[in-house]
Each structure stands twice: as structure tokens, then as C-alpha cells.
Design a protein around this nucleic acid. Sequence first.
DNA 1: TAGCTTACGGAGCAACGTTCCGTTTCGGCA
DNA 2: TGCCGAAACGGAACGTTGCTCCGTAAGCTA
Lengths: 196, 196
Amino acid sequence: METTEGQVGGVGRGKRADAARNQEKLLAAAAQVFVTSGVDAPVRQIAAEAGVGMGTIYRHFPTRAELVVAVFRHQVEECAEAGPRLLAEAGSPFEALRAWVDLFVDFLVTKHGLANTLEPDSSGFAALHSYFIDRLMPVAEHLLDAAVEAGEIRPGTRPYELLRGIGNLCIGHESDTDYDPRRLIDLLLRGLQRSS
Amino acid sequence: METTEGQVGGVGRGKRADAARNQEKLLAAAAQVFVTSGVDAPVRQIAAEAGVGMGTIYRHFPTRAELVVAVFRHQVEECAEAGPRLLAEAGSPFEALRAWVDLFVDFLVTKHGLANTLEPDSSGFAALHSYFIDRLMPVAEHLLDAAVEAGEIRPGTRPYELLRGIGNLCIGHESDTDYDPRRLIDLLLRGLQRSS
DNA sequence: TAGCTTACGGAGCAACGTTCCGTTTCGGCA
DNA sequence: TGCCGAAACGGAACGTTGCTCCGTAAGCTA
């Protein structure tokens, strides 16, 4: 599951200088292109934007998903870390859950087309799915458990399903001004609450 | 919005015999292929199954969406007609709404990949989206209004959003045994209920 | 600086949706 | 019955995609 070398982050320590440079260029170019054309942008376009050949992009990121993961790693990480913090700060576990879901939705909604890739198959995006789930599901689980514990929501909701549901609801919000996923997600959260 | 001639249903009245025959063959083949390979099946595959050339399929159904619409028209119609009937039969408007949503979900869930095409853009599937919305939104609206009227749910939920939300939640349920859209849709409906 | 290793670039392949047009078939009319 | 224009057919061909492959270029080490 490695991106290029043993561990992530260091871009290219130990690699050849040009390889490290190109990896940086690719990450920057991809981030740029994702903003304008969405995460489904043609690989060629990203390569062109980076001034790099097709071979290079696939050597650094054998799968599109790995490129996407690399680009968004930071933000996913932030989102994951926000979970426990919100739990400590917010007035109640449920409020923490709500705030965290907002964060997650913001993330998905601002990344053109990201939500569509959360499905397990999604033609080669499996790695992306795994990464999201691996990193965020424990956080969601923690928040849900706390809210159950506090008696604010009914037990029985699966963290995985909640994440996928939220991801799904965020699909296609762009280019459709009549559709605001947040309202539906709000309904979902209400549905979660203990109906006392 | 016509499929081939002025009105739907009659397949090919007034057309040449071979044209009518081919349209039938295409509908049958498409229905068949959709079951096994999903609605995203390659056009070539449908043409081959029908024993027909590429040109023929595109002449009859200028857009994939129109083919899909033609194939599922019956079932969409049934679903639409079930709305008022359920309202009359069920114990309460909310129960009718729930039953109707169940019907809708069944429809989406049994058609491999159909849910994915409900987005307004979805690369040429715009016609499909329009058809679904045109036909089903009034029904949903009616049910929602009745439930609001009866004081069972809070007002303010847009029928369009509800339909799209349900559609979205149904995406990707196949090939993921851990994901059951129905549980989430149940949450959504709970969230709709007046929290008295 | 020589030479081995690593990485680069883009031509090339397969699959797809869609278009286009030469060929075939139909069916009304003499 | 035979003719002929219109209607419909089939599939080759085009553009676009993801991805692979390998000859070439660059970097690093000794």
C-alpha cells in the first residue's frame, strides 16, 4: 500500500533527485487540476499540467486512487484528528458528532467529485475507499459510541454505513442548485437521536 | 421526450415492419443485459445481444438514457401509481410514505447500477433523471404534504431532495454486503417525523 | 569520468461512446 | 408482378479514456 517508498510524507528521501522533484510537481499539479476539473480529471491532463509523461505519473502513483489519497491525506488526517477534539470541546457527544459530520461534509463537498469515489469498487478507486474507511471509521465509531453512552442516540447504527451514507448523499451536489446534501444529512442525524 | 414516434407504448405503429421488430428486439435485449451487466453495460453488448448494428441502436434511442427509460417505463409508472393508492390504503399518510419509499428503494436496488444514473448530469443520462423526477416528484410531494397535513412530519422537506437523497443512498449497495441503504433510509424517515 | 541503476517520456493498446455513410430492405404503386 | 424512392440497417471509423511497455536520458557512486 506504499505510495513510493516505505513511508509517506517525506516525498522522496533516498530517491533520486529528479524523482523527488517530479513527485512534488505531480502532487501540486494534481491538486490544481482536481480543483478545476474534479478528481476524475483525465490522467493525461494531470501529467500535462505537471509537465511530465504518462509513465512518470503511473510509476509514482500506480493507481489514480493513490494519487488522490496523497493529495488529500492532509485534510483527511485533520478530519480524523478533529473527532476526539470535538468530543472534548463540544457540549455533548451528539453535538460533537454533528460538528464532525459537518466537517466531513465540508471536505467532501468542496472536493469536486470526491464523494463519487467512496464506493468500494468505483473502477480502481478501491484504495481510496479503504483509506477513507480505515482512517475515519474508528473516529465515527468513537463519536457514535459516546453519543450512545450519553443516551443521546439509539444504539445500533453502524459507523461504516453512516460514513458511506453521508458520502453518498454528497454525490452530485454540484451542478444542481436544488440539491443540498446538508439538509438530508441533518434529517439523518435527527433520525439517529433517541426519540424520548 | 418521445422515444421514436409521437407516443410511447405502441412500439412501431406506422413505422416500417423491420424497424418495429428491431425496437422490440432492442428493448428485450437491453432488459436482459441490464439484469446481468447493469444499466452501464456497453452499448455494443446490447446491440450484439439484439443481433443489431450500432447504428440501429442509436437511431432508435439517440441516448442511452432513452433506452433505459423505455426499458423501465413500466415499473416507474407502477411506482408512481402506487403513491395515491397507498395513501388511501395505509393506516396513516406517514405509513403510506414509508411504504412508497420502500417500493421505490426496491425498484432502485434491484436494478443494478440504476441509482447511479439519477444524477442530473451523469454523462448523458440527463433524460433519465428528468423522467424520474417528472414522474415521481409529484407523487412524493403529495405523500409528504399529506403527512405534514396529518401532523406526522415536520414541514419543509423538499420532495426533490428526498428523492435524490434516497437515490443517492442506494448507490453502490451491490458488491458491498456491509452496506444496506434501507437502514439509512429508515433513519432519514425517522428524522422526518415530528419530534413530539 | 565511467558505468550501472534509476527514472523518464510518450507511443501504443484495448475498451468505450458516438457518428457517419455505403448498402440493404421495405412497401406503395403502376 | 416488378420497380424504385424512402427508410432503416450495419459496422467501420473517430475521439477519448485508463494503463503498459520499452528505448532513451539522467543521476549517483566509485
